[in-house]
Amino acid sequence: MAPADLHFQVDIAHWGWSIAWFLWFVGIAGMGSVAYYFVRKAALSYVIFGSLAIGLVLVVSHLGRWWNLPRTLWTMVTNGIFNYSSWMIIGIVLLSVHLLLTVILVASHVRWLQRIGWLKWTGSLAKASAYLIVYAFLGFMATVYSGFLLTQASGIPLWNTSLIPVLWVVSGSIAAIAVIELMYVFGLIESSVSTLAVRLGLGLDAIKLLAVLGFLHVALAYGSAGARIGATAMASGEYALMTWGGVIGIGILVPIAIGLYTVLVKKSKPLLAISSIAALAGVFFLRAVVLLAGAWEPLVL
């Protein structure tokens, strides 16, 4: 029997689809920045920039009082109020610096910008190993932040687990690998890089499957009432199709099947394209279903 006090956060706090898209774009940009350290291609930097820019537009437009943001930031700075115990403010700082470094990276790849004298420093800076290490670290931390953003929301017991940042990093890595595979499909990257990415992707898919099932198992078997309500919605309730069909079927099993075929039989660009799109969709479904299934602990007298 459903408890009398049953409320999903999406109906009240409205963290719904736009936040799911935001988390997805941050995952692609974040772990894409780690991948950039190994695959230094212009196309990857454009994908990172696009993802970050769209993600930020989405999250700002989702704010109920977005028009008050300049005043909010001004009041915060002038009053010296910085709440660094909030993962959201940590994220704002991380994403701002990450965006700035991405703009420099993109500028280093655009030929006509490199012909402008006062922008040539971007080319040399973006090639420096130290810069790329800092960039990769920032991307990793941005992905971690997008997980802890949910973990810190203590009203939603389903989210109060450190598995979420881990899941976000693993699935963000899968998304970055899918982007690299798509770059191979479009002839933007060498075949050897793609082969390595497929093998790496197989391992990450297996870890993601274990982490998703572990997330559900722990919440269902040992979680509080609120966590169980959320996990039940994911496993057998309203969002079961998204979990089993979207996250696990499309997002994990399809890429594993195509990955195994690629490694054991032969490499096919159309199949790799399907696998990449399926993996990216699965990463999105994972974020969406975890968000939408978030419910409060029912209160009883």
């Binding site: 009240i12 704010l63 109920g64 009082r65 977005w66 008050n68 909010t72 009041t75 203590s154």
Partner: peptide, 27 residues
């Protein structure tokens, strides 16, 4: 209210589910 951008983090952070959004002010 001067410092609120309407992010809802306080809403999801409250274990008691006692915050609600005013439909006009979005506070």
């Amino acid at each position: 209210p001067r410092m609120c951008a309407g992010c809802s983090y306080c809403v999801t952070s409250c274990p008691y589910n006692v915050r609600w959004f005013h439909p006009d002010s979005k506070l």
